[in-house]
Amino acid sequence: MAIAGNILILIGSLFLFLGSLGIFRMPDVYNRLQAGTKATTLGAMSLILGIGFLNNEFLVKSIVLIIFIVLTNPVSSSTIARASHKSGVPLTDKSIIDVCRDDIRKEEV
């Protein structure tokens, strides 16, 4: 149990590290959010579950925490993405299509 907990904590920290690296390396808000959301969700899940394994009285509570993180984390990222798109933050030059922007332009015309 202790070994499994430690491995889970290690995996969690690895994904959190990769997520923060992604936030540095990605070119624009949306790609940064992509790296941020996914890596932090799994990283935090794994970390919390690892702590639950190490301390058995926290195991059930850690599962509740995981459920709340999975429910709320994507909502916040989605909201940030929506807000930045509405306020006109541009996509990186590498982007090949933006259906949403075309849509808005059509409404204005």
Binding site: F15, G19, L21, P27, N31, A39, T92, K94, I97
Partner: peptide
């Protein structure tokens, strides 16, 4: 995402 981030070429092809 992890593979994309650690790849030096940063292989992304984004769009909405």
């Amino acid at each position: 995402v992890a593979l994309r981030v650690v790849n030096p070429a940063l292989p992304i092809n984004p769009g909405i």
